[in-house]
Amino acid sequence: MGNERLNSSRRNFIRKSALLAGTLVVGSAVKPFQAMLFAANEPEKTMPWYAIGIDIEKCIGCGSCARACKAENDVPKEPFFFRSWVEQYTIKNDGTLAVQSPNGGIDDFVQTVPEAEIFKSFFVPKMCNHCAKSPCVQVCPVGATYESPEGIVLVDEKYCIGCRYCIQACPYGCRYLHPEKQTADKCTLCYHRLKKGLNPACFDVCPTGARIYGDLHDMNSPLHKFLKEHSTQVLKPQLNTGSKLFYNGLSSEVR
């Protein structure tokens, strides 16, 4: 009886050590393919590594970013397809939450909650977080979505098969299926503008300077100034997506 137990626990020990050793061997063999497992790693500092800062305190919810984005990127005018949009959060005195986004902020925001019941109200502009460990990139079965060496998540329209996995995978709801092209579509941080030396359209039109983008490698960029001067936060940090969209003044109610 005692002997048997001893034997079985020794067998268990050997089995577990073998499992551990096996995992280590497999793990080290897989290491070179880490890029495929975890999407892009921050590369050598030969290229910019783009990130975004949004100051919620400065956003006036005019929806200029959402309008400019649709015009710039030929996003269908029909509602509910957005690469960039604005939400209004209202926290009432009794602690309940009201969220609205009339046509993504393109239509005027009208506060429906009576003034006396409002504890706090603010706008949250949303767009792709350009995560460094993007869930959307990891699920693509054909390698049609990827992180560019500049840290921008892009979609290869010619390779996308429209399977919608990435749309499901994005925890921030930043992707949609383009109704005409039938491919996944999303914010490119206006890659075509960046390459021409222009600012992304939504940053260009923002009337109050609530949006900042820049190179995280460049310690003198306005973005670094923004990050140093404010205590910023990313959306859903618990998911460890490596989000590179930093909000100032983000309430925990924002999802």
């Binding site: 890029a35 495929m36 892009a40 390698g143 049609a144 990827y146 560019s148 060496p149 290869d156 390779y159």
Partner: peptide, 9 residues
């Protein structure tokens, strides 16, 4: 650069 078509950039 990675598991994708670099020309699409």
């Amino acid at each position: 650069y990675g598991h994708y078509r670099a020309n699409s950039m």
